[in-house]
Structures are given as structure tokens and as C-alpha cells.
Design a protein around this nucleic acid. Structure first.
Length: 491
RNA sequence: CGGGGUGUAGCGCAGCCCGGUUAGCGCAUCUGGUUUGGGACCAGAGGGUCGCAGGUUCGAAUCCUGCCACCCCGACCA
């Protein structure tokens, strides 16, 4: 099986690369580090977008759009922010090309140099807060709850399809509030929205928590994140939400008059998820036969494959198939009927498994005779032949069951690969062995965090919200600690 | 940006060390036929600036130099 895929157990990262290409999700482009998201991959992203957009709007947010270009001076207004992003910014210096006088081709016109260089946005806090200054004078102008769907550019050294690309697609929420409490509440609310989306739609269990100071977003007071465990034992940060305090309001002088007539700086949050979610989706569930997509995000939920001896026989079953298809579509299930005559059924079976289609129906002469259909599920690779009566209801229930089963599998995997560790040698042994999540005590210092990172490449993924108070000693330094934090090697 | 590897048809590769007919093979594609319940078979056909640019040579896919891209390993990150 899967003779075109690298074996997952032999070489996980090669398996991932193969899968992205072979399942026709994306490919690398002529531009270093930038990917082409192909129609099938983009269809999954559109489903992700649609559901997130619905959730944002349900929580009171509206969409808007801000420019791709950011004046260089904006970026430097917030000290920590510029510090964090300066090393990975693409810069526009000119606005015109001309024909090369001494030869072929075109060159940058040196007379068309920009007065002030433009940065291609690595994120939009600065340009958005520059605008918010004009929008906000009084408490009556608050709260602002804006989201934008956009592309951003971060000039990365090393890229991988979906997981880290120079240009990527994302959404970024930018909110403005009158009080600290309200902004903190917003940041927490959005990390919960992300966690809910990951678990319900992506079937991906996540750990919610705060970032340590060194892992925090450049310019944030507090960063919340959701962390997921991939099948190779590495963690992947799937979404972040930041409480920005008054840092950007101060940098861009955004003040408002409160109800008592007092002037104060505005409180801010920002939060985002990116096409990296595609990487999480792929790595969390897929197997050696290919992609495994949760039904809620599968562009095709059900594929129907006809089995026949000749075209007359194919024509003879199309009436029945079309009825099945329209019945399924009537209840909102996306169905593809693959009646291409140039591939055999076996090829199609393998192909839709590679593409992760949750449910496959196969119908042939025997089924027509017996009023049955063969139904196969991608997650378990099992199949059964059932009567076609009540097929629609059966499939509706099956899709729900598959969604839950995929989640359960990922959840069980995480449970089996989460270790409560108290001794340093055990910490090292687990990381060397198979990785996973390590819950261990930490003394709370950046020095210890840094040393652990140097010695093991493991980092503090987050300080989980729900990790209980518990007296212990730091797994590295032996100093007292009140709480366990989540360590892992990460993407 | 450092170390290693690769670049030959849409894809995967051989040929390169040791320069010399018309650059091969498998898959895919096209045509015709037989097939179709787990990646079909037969016959025929088409498809190449050998990554790019220089150089050495009577002659370069092959040797030399530079550049570019991709993959793996590090430093940076969502």
C-alpha cells in the first residue's frame, strides 16, 4: 500500500513532505521559501477559514483590510516589536523598473528610490494602531473588534511547506479596549475560540496555556497559545493570542477619554492562526496510506466509485448513484461521483485514501442486484456492505463517528505520550527515546529555561491554564516550584 | 548564513569517475483494442536548450569556474 509515500515510521519528515506533494495540497514555487497552495489544499484552507470566520463573527468581530506595506518608521515605534521582527523583514526600496541601457532585460530604476522604505508586513499591529489613533477619542469609540484575512511575509532561513514558509496566509485579530480586564478577557476568549476550533473541527486536542517570557510575542505583555502534539512526538504551536497591554497605544499615542473625563491609553489584543494549521492537520492524523481528514474539514466527504464491466453497465447504475448523491447533498454532505473510465476502481480507492476522503462508497452489479452498497471509512480502513435503505442517515451518523474517532485517536496518542517527569535523567531519556509532552516543574527563571533548551532542544511550550498548583522542585535546578509546565521539542 | 547531498522528458532515475554514433529506462501522456469488486494488459506513438552562465577541447550531460534552485543537518521563527 501507499507505494508512492515514504514510510511514516522510517522517515517522518520525508513522509510529511511526500504527503503534501502527493495528496496535491501544495508545492514549492519559483520563489525561494514560498509555496503554491494547490486547489485541493486551498479547499481545505477555505473550510478552515469559513468556520473560523463564522466563530469570529459569532463573538462580535468584523472583518477589515489594512495595507500590505508598512512604513519603516512605524515598525520601530514599539521597541520590543521591532527587535522581534527586524531580522526577518522584506523591504521595498524602489517603485519603478526600466530597460537596461547596456543590454537585455530590466533593472531597478535608481531614480525611483522611495523616500521612506516600505516593509512588507510581518504582522500588522503597527499600521493598525496608527489607524486606531484616528478612530479612537472617547470610550464611546470602544470596543473595536477587527479581524483581517491577509498574507504576511517573514524572511525565514529554512522553510517547509505549510509549517514555515516565507509568505503565509493567516488571519490577525486586532482589538482595542477601555480596560485592562476587558482586553485580557478578549485574549483569553480568542485562545478558547482557537482551542474549540482545533478540537471540534480539526479533531486536534490542544493544550491551552501562557507562554514563558522568552517565548512571548514581540511587544506582548502576555501570550496565550494552543499546543498540539504531532505523531513524531514534537509539539506544534497552532494558534496564539496576545494581551498587548498599552504598549501599542503608547507607541502610537492612542488615548481615549473615559466616562469620568480622564485620559488613558487604550488596551489591546491581537491573535492569529495561519496556514500552519494545515501542517498540524496533516501531521496529527495521517498515516502510511495518505491523508486522513476530519469530515468537518474534508472538501469531499463522500466519494462514490462505480464498479462495472462496460459503459452500458455504468450507464445503467448512474440513475441509482445520482439519487444517492442528491440525497446526501440534500443534507449538506459534499459528494463526488468518480465515473472516470480511464482508471480502475483499485486505483481510485488508493487515490482517495491518499487524499483523505473520509467515506468511500463503491457500487457494482452485485450491489444493484441486492440493493446494497459497500461503504469504507478512511480513519479505520474498514469496509462493510450494507443495504441502501437509510443510507443517508447512516452516512450522517458515520461522518460524526469518524470525526469523533479521529479526535479520540489523537487524544489517546497525546495521553500515551505525555509524561509527568520529576528527574532530569528521566527528562533526557524521554526526549531521546520518542519525544512527546513532558510535564515538569520549572523554577520560573529564563536562565534555567535557556539551559534546558541548549542541552536538549526542548522548550517550554506553555504554562497550561489547567495545570494544578502542586509543590515540587525544578527538574533542572532543583529549586522550588509551584506548578508543572509543558516541555517539548517543537516545530 | 555554515556543513553535506541533489539537479538529465510531467514524475522517479541510469549514464558522468575514464569526454567520442542519433542521450537511455520505468511510470505518466496520446491512439487502438481487451479489461474494470484493491494501484490492469497488449500493440503503437509523441515528448529533452542534460538547472543557468562562462571556460577547456576537434568534440562536453560527462572535465574546470561561477551562479541558481531543491532536500537533509545546524543557528532564527507562527
Amino acid at each position: 500500500m501507499a507505494k508512492f509515500l515514504t514510510n511514516r515510521e522510517e522517515n517522518y519528515s520525508q513522509w510529511y513532505n511526500d504527503l503534501v506533494i502527493k495528496a496535491d495540497l501544495a508545492e514549492s514555487s519559483a520563489v525561494r521559501g514560498c509555496m503554491i497552495i494547490k486547489p485541493y489544499g486551498y479547499a481545505i484552507w477555505e473550510k478552515i477559514q469559513a468556520e473560523l470566520d463564522r466563530l469570529f463573527k459569532a463573538t462580535g468581530h468584523v472583518n477589515a483590510y489594512f495595507p500590505l506595506f508598512i512604513p519603516k518608521s512605524f515598525l520601530s515605534k514599539e521597541a520590543a516589536h521591532v527587535e522581534g521582527f527586524a531580522k526577518e523583514c522584506a523591504v521595498v526600496t524602489h517603485y519603478r523598473l526600466k530597460n537596461d541601457e547596456n543590454g537585455k532585460g530590466i533593472i531597478v530604476d535608481p531614480t525611483a528610490k522611495l523616500e521612506e522604505e516600505l516593509i512588507i508586513r510581518p504582522t500588522s499591529e503597527t499600521i493598525i494602531w496608527h489607524s486606531y489613533k484616528n478612530w479612537i477619542q472617547s470610550y464611546r469609540d470602544l470596543t473595536i473588534l477587527i479581524n483581517q484575512w491577509a498574507n504576511v511575509v517573514r524572511w525565514e532561513m529554512r522553510t517547509r511547506l505549510f509549517l514555515r514558509t516565507t509568505e503565509f496566509l493567516w488571519q490577525e485579530g486586532h482589538t482595542a479596549h477601555a480596560t485592562r480586564e476587558e482586553a485580557v478577557e478578549e485574549a483569553e476568549k480568542m485562545i478558547n475560540v482557537y482551542a474549540g476550533f482545533a478540537e471540534n473541527s480539526m479533531a486536534l486536542p490542544v493544550i491551552k496555556g501562557s507562554k514563558s517570557e522568552s517565548e512571548r510575542f514581540a511587544g506582548a505583555i502576555d501570550t496565550f497559545a494552543i499546543e498540539a502534539l504531532m505523531q513524531d512526538g514534537k509539539a506544534l504551536q497552532a494558534g496564539t493570542s496576545h494581551f498587548l497591554g498599552q504598549n501599542f497605544a503608547k507607541a502610537f499615542d492612542v488615548q481615549f477619554t473615559d466616562k469620568t473625563g480622564k485620559l488613558d491609553y487604550v488596551w489591546a489584543t491581537s491573535w492569529g492562526v495561519s496556514t500552519r494549521l494545515m501542517g498540524a492537520l496533516i501531521m496529527a492524523h495521517s498515516d502510511n496510506n495518505g491523508l486522513v481528514l476530519p469530515p468537518k474539514l474534508a472538501p469531499i466527504q463522500v466519494v462514490i466509485i462505480p464498479i462495472y464491466r462496460n459503459v452500458d453497465q455504468l450507464a445503467g447504475m448512474s440513475g441509482k448513484v445520482m439519487k444517492i448523491k442528491s440525497d446526501l447533498e440534500a443534507v449538506g454532505i459534499s459528494v463526488k461521483y468518480d465515473d472516470r473510465d480511464n482508471n480502475k476502481p483499485g486505483f481510485k480507492f488508493a487515490d482517495y485514501e491518499l487524499k483523505g476522503v473520509p467515506v468511500r462508497l463503491a457500487i457494482g452489479p452485485r450491489d444493484l442486484e441486492n440493493n446494497t452498497i459497500e461503504i469504507a471509512r478512511r480513519d479505520t480502513l474498514t469496509k462493510e456492505t450494507i443495504p441502501t435503505d437509510n443510507l443517508t442517515a447512516h452516512i450522517q451518523a458515520l461522518l460524526i463517528d469518524i470525526q469523533e474517532n479521529i479526535y479520540k485517536k489523537a487524544h489517546d496518542f497525546r495521553k500515551e505520550n505525555t509524561f509527568y517527569v520529576n528527574k532530569w535523567d528521566e527528562f533526557l531519556r524521554i526526549l531521546d527515546d520518542k519525544g512527546g509532552f513532558i510535564m515538569a516543574h520549572w523554577d520560573g527563571t529564563a536562565e534555567t529555561e535557556e539551559k534546558i533548551k541548549e542541552e536538549t532542544k526542548a522548550t517550554i511550550r506553555c504554562i497550561p491554564f489547567d495545570s494544578p498548583d502542586e509543590d515540587g522542585v525544578c527538574v533542572y535546578s532543583g529549586k522550588p516550584s509551584k506548578r508543572r509546565v509543558l516541555f517539548a521539542r517543537s516545530y
